[in-house]
Amino acid sequence: MTTDLVYHVAGAGLTGLALWRLATCRDALRRIMALNVLAIGIAMVLLASGFDAATGRTDPVPQAFALTGIVVLVSVTAALLALAERIGGRSND
């Protein structure tokens, strides 16, 4: 078992967890959080794929992708939260 395999498991797990929550929950804030967890899971599998266990280095390009993803996600989260505040907590009533 290698390091990247552990993180592959964790990333896939986070992705699945987030997708399950998205499909079963109606609370707006919780859904936004699930989307954040989903993004984290994706970043994790991405970085784990770029990780070279032999040299202990990670490919810089997926690192840049993950960084970009983080910034994009905080922007969209802020927009989603602003919208959620305007319509009140539940998006369906």
Binding site: L19, L22, A23, T24, C25, R26, R31, S91, N92
Partner: peptide, 13 residues
């Protein structure tokens, strides 16, 4: 029309 967000996510999934 009352969209059910979690249904949509289920469909996507």
């Amino acid at each position: 029309l009352t969209p059910r967000p979690e249904r949509g996510a289920l469909a996507i999934l």
